[in-house]
Design a protein around this nucleic acid. Structure first.
Lengths: 251, 251
DNA sequence: AGAATAGTGTCTATCAGACAATATATG
DNA sequence: CATATATTGTCTGATAGACACTATTCT
């Protein structure tokens, strides 16, 4: 708390921002919302959305506000949680910027709009970002990687997977979420047994949905449970880093 | 990114600090390192240690530096991980302060020193803090609660419990860590089966330690594994919020 | 009927909880 | 021998993975 010798570095005020990794599942692939930067640095590069924290709001409120601005969706509808903070000295060439990253999960959202800030926004398959086709601005690739791992592990021991599903949803849709986020197929029978027997994970509505083909599927809504106990673990042997597009399901 | 109407709040530079929740196990109870504040605000109150992030260091480096300053222990010896960031507008009466909280776990550390900053530092049983006997400064009680829950859940699916043990250690010592952090007793037999069969959790040294009484215990060191798979779950029925002192073990 | 998707049932290996029994030290 | 702690073994119920089988719709 007392002053330190200057050669060890001085205490400087920093700019604090929130950045958002917004995931959704569409077309059987995990997508992330990215914006095309309209100014330097990294002009023209893709980046995750974010903005400054204002002086009258909490970090969570700042994240919720940015989420609403970017997705134009009631942020109450989405799962939003703090992910990690990033503050390496050189991460922003303009100066010291500490960013508190948030993870947001939502059902297949309306194709993103021309943002309020006139930035172009796109849903981009996470796979295509990870494979390095589009380099992200700043350290956003690191943030995205951390967000993906957080999402994958949260599917194991919480019920957040339902945040990816618009209500009402079917067990198959919920299973598809797991398959797409984890990157490998799950046994439909065992998955159904697990999610229907877990207390308050999903609640049957009594309704059914008739598809173009096949037996109609029962519909469910989200249950009250926040945690899955015992968890639904990624199989131990499925260690290899799989993709986030359609898993090798026989189609 | 563009300017917003001022009535929504302005972007102001903020002060960024790191705060440390440092846990250790001593006398069969979980303890946290607290300092007695030597200046306003909250002069005389207990608080978790922390300090400003300097302009030439990462957040992790700042946390490691503060840890060394507070514990005078090589921070390489301790487990250190980022916990969560706290930035509510009113959390520090002096102005906007964003703090990045870290969680540190270590073996029974030397009784804390007169800190480099001449602050008194104490190991305080977590139980006595949670029960409200000593109110912590700022929002440090929230941070402590979050840290405790993080530590408890990390014991389930990672191998960090060994960070609480000075090497070499016995299986009973490791079990005591779980019991003290979780707050309830574990079956010695089942615990041993679990930790010895988990791949690379602990490695036998071949040595034994002779105690005052009883059969000598085999000694182990930390294994290379970072994760426990399958996890060692807190029993599902052990839902009640137990204490962090000696669990109801027959003594 | 055939295709497609939803849902049920069963077998088995594994694992956790309960707890009995044995081992090795000290006094 | 009694006591205390460490360590091994055993029984049993719950659960996950594999996979066969049945159900219900549409064309």
């Amino acid at each position: 708390m007392t002053d330190k010798p200057k050669r060890e570095g001085r205490v400087l005020p920093a700019v604090v921002t929130v950045d958002l990794v917004i995931f959704t599942v569409r077309d059987d692939a995990l997508h992330v919302l990215l914006i095309e930067r309209g100014k330097e640095p990294f002009l023209g590069s893709l980046a995750i959305p974010g903005g400054h924290v204002r002086d009258n709001e909490t970090l969570d409120e700042a994240a919720g506000r940015e989420l609403s601005e970017e997705t134009q969706i009631d942020s109450e509808q989405l799962h939003l949680e703090q992910l990690h903070s990033y503050g390496a000295p050189g991460r922003d060439p303009r100066g010291r910027v500490i960013t508190v990253a948030y993870l947001a999960l939502g059902p297949n959202l309306p194709t993103p709009m021309a943002g309020t800030d006139a930035k172009a926004a796109y849903w981009v398959p996470v796979d295509s970002v990870l494979s390095g086709h589009n380099k992200l601005a700043f350290d956003h690739a690191d943030i995205l990687g951390d967000a993906l791992e957080r999402a994958r592990s949260k599917l194991e021991y919480t019920t957040v997977a339902t945040a990816f599903c618009a209500e009402p949803f079917t067990v198959s849709e919920l299973r598809r979420v797991y398959e797409v986020v984890w990157g490998f197929p799950l046994d439909p029978s065992n998955f159904r047994r697990k999610v229907t027997r877990a207390a308050s994970f999903i609640e049957p509505t009594g309704e059914r949905r008739i598809a173009e083909t096949g037996r109609p599927a029962a519909l469910y809504t989200r249950g009250k449970a926040q945690f899955l106990s015992p968890p639904l673990l990624r199989s131990i042997d499925a260690t290899a880093a799989q993709g986030t597009t359609a898993p090798p399901v026989q189609q």
